[in-house]
Nucleic acid binder design. Structure first.
Lengths: 140, 140
DNA sequence: CCCTATATTAGATATAATCTAAATCATTCA
DNA sequence: TGAATGATTTAGATTATATCTAATATAGGG
């Protein structure tokens, strides 16, 4: 995702293209991991060392609300984020806590009677277990 | 789940049956919501007002490790827990943040080539959208 | 080039979770 | 039953994470 694309996707969501927002989107584009807010804050600070923590959190909320960024539903201490681009599921390692992507595939919707009047916007699938590296090490 | 069952399920996991642990299990049995650690702490404190926050967190970790309790994968600020008993999926309301249960149904596993050497222990499905109550109120 | 709503800032504050080391208790085994 | 012992609990401090505030700055439209 290059400069123009980032700018346009921000603006088409009604968000101004500011330096911190741009830096966040660029960082998320380049880092396919699932950075925490703190990591994103640090990255934005490398670009502009005067950036504020509050801005990072504000923008994360705005970007999530705009549908450009997604907060990954993991239970760890700190929120983790990724670009809402190519769809994928997530795998969280029981031992090392790493969050990895798993190729996307369709998940069947629940039966309509068990949903009732709820309106589903999205669905996330989270696998848990041992990542490749931890699975090969001797059991604790 | 009555007293004896709780006691035995703790012991068969190698955990002593202590007052705080018992109170936590009993509370989770009675409260099918998805209480936060703070709510569980408060509940345990109603039983024994001298209980410590640290104990609550220690025990939650132990109970999760033992497979008796599950931490729900929601992205909110505070961790949420429920009994690992009847399986179910989760629905999180975009607007009010409530976490609700959705009837269990089998979710297909990912293709083995996209899992690689990872070992899957469990899988959680989280739906997001508007709960019945919020869906019926006028759009924000 | 202005104007103005939107966004950013530093720092204080709130909330959530963990750590420490001493005291206590549940279970085992004689 | 009565120690012995290792697991567990405790209060309170500490760390980590997130949000709030009100003053300042800036993007983008006219």
């Amino acid at each position: 995702m290059d400069a123009e694309v980032i700018k346009r996707s921000l603006q088409s969501s009604g968000l101004r293209c500011t330096a911190p927002r741009y830096a966040m989107m660029a960082f998320l584009t380049d880092h396919k991991g699932h950075p925490t807010a703190a990591e994103i804050f640090k990255a934005v600070n490398r670009v502009d060392p005067r950036s504020s923590r509050a801005t990072t959190y504000n923008n994360l909320r705005d970007l999530v609300k705009a549908g450009l960024v997604r907060e990954v539903a993991v239970e760890g201490r700190a929120g983790r984020f990724d670009l809402e681009g190519m769809r994928h599921h997530h795998f969280v390692c029981d031992r090392c806590g790493n969050v990895e992507d798993v190729d996307w595939y369709d998940v069947p919707q629940p039966a309509s009677h068990s949903l009732g009047k709820r309106v589903v916007r999205e669905c996330q699938l989270i696998f848990r277990g041992l990542c490749a590296k931890c699975a090969q090490r001797a059991p604790r």
